[in-house]
Design a protein around this nucleic acid. Structure first.
Lengths: 211, 211
DNA sequence: AATAAATACGACCGGTCGGTCTTCTTTAGT
DNA sequence: ACTAAAGAAGACCGACCGGTCGTATTTATT
């Protein structure tokens, strides 16, 4: 099966551009993502970008999708390799903090930055971000519900509330690690969720203290 | 004691501009705050603004200070009217959520928006925001420490961690309330902190369930 | 070898940005 | 009434923004 070299070349460019766009947007926002800068930093011409996306908004939407794919690879996929229940919840949170620690994106968290940027700006970009956020929340709640069903968390637990709390630890980590002391921040984020789960889980051996 | 009418006029204009700037920046960020738009929305000329602030950056810094003053009035001052200890911590958090519920600012939270906007952009604005955030964290930790000293929280409590958690509930509320269901979000934010404090406080009568 | 499609480019457009300059009005001090 | 200072206005600047257009280059098809 041969691939069309023209399409292959375009696809290569497209993903390279989007990776750079995710990086840039994590630091400067989806609005601060200037087509001129993006083109320059990639050694392409600005008009070359318009061959792939008709407008800045189309590029912004594509950038969001690329960020979702990265998040899926780096945070969700590793967590799904852990066994269902509280261990998976912990693995997800740990993968997220690891992602921040590794400084993968210059802005820390693409979603935190862009969601705050657009939460008061109606339009397709905001709608897409809200959709992504809703999906993420639903995923977190599903993981918590699974743990309840396995008996690893109390049956009368407020599932949505615990999901809210776990995500809150992550958001706060993204924000504080860039303005205050990063090490302290990450320690709080990790210890907080671990302590929370241990307090709720009847079987403490599922959640060892160690790193 | 008479005041200089010229200076008074300038002062009036200045606070009016800064109030509008805080509002605008809460929605569009400190960078999205365009001097032209700001001037138009106030019925003044753009060059009139430069008579008060030499540059956009100077205006941004003044806007931050104004937002701090508003926060002090609307969140910190009410909390300080509550008795020291866990009740004051709760009052602070409730005042914060009330502030979000009241939709005082179109963007929800000035600090959450701007701190995420600037956390990867070195410069005086970022430094000032980091300073403000550090002060806020220190204040929160002080309140928690006071509650420990009063015996309303365990002596071996990780003060900084609880302060981190309380702030995390607030940050998450600011973010989620604009993209997901606001009522659910606010309920989680309030119930979460309340449940957390009640679980730690030996005297449950200090923290009644009621609204 | 010729044609067509997908990429990419340089030049350019109207509009907006932050910022400057000159001018005019308002007000205080005398 | 006159002067000095502060506030505000409008015209204007260079830089950059998102976006368009015509054209050249690469590649697959025939």
């Amino acid at each position: 099966m041969t691939v069309d070299g023209r399409l292959a070349r375009g696809e290569r460019t497209r993903t390279a551009v989007l990776d750079a766009a995710v990086s840039l947007a994590s630091a400067n926002g989806l609005d601060g993502l200037s087509l001129g800068h993006l083109a320059d930093s990639l050694g392409v011409s600005k008009s070359g970008l318009f061959a792939h996306w008709r407008s800045k908004e189309a590029l912004q939407l594509a950038t969001i999708d690329r960020a979702v794919a990265q998040w899926q690879e780096r945070i969700v996929a590793p967590a799904l390799r852990a066994p269902r229940g509280v261990r998976r919840i912990r693995a997800l949170h740990e993968a997220r903090i690891d992602f921040y620690v590794a400084r993968v994106l210059p802005g820390g968290c693409f979603f935190a930055t862009t969601e705050f940027e657009f939460n008061a700006r109606p339009g397709p970009v905001r709608d897409r971000l809200a959709e992504v956020f809703a999906d993420w929340t639903a995923f977190l709640e599903r993981l918590v519900r699974e743990a309840v069903e396995l008996g690893e968390l109390p049956a009368d637990l407020d599932v949505a509330l615990l999901a809210y709390e776990i995500d809150a630890y992550g958001i706060a980590a993204a924000m504080r690690s860039r303005l205050l002391d990063p090490d302290t921040t990450y320690r709080h984020a990790r210890r907080g969720v671990l302590a929370r789960l241990r307090a709720l889980c009847p079987d403490p051996t599922l959640l060892p203290e160690g790193p």
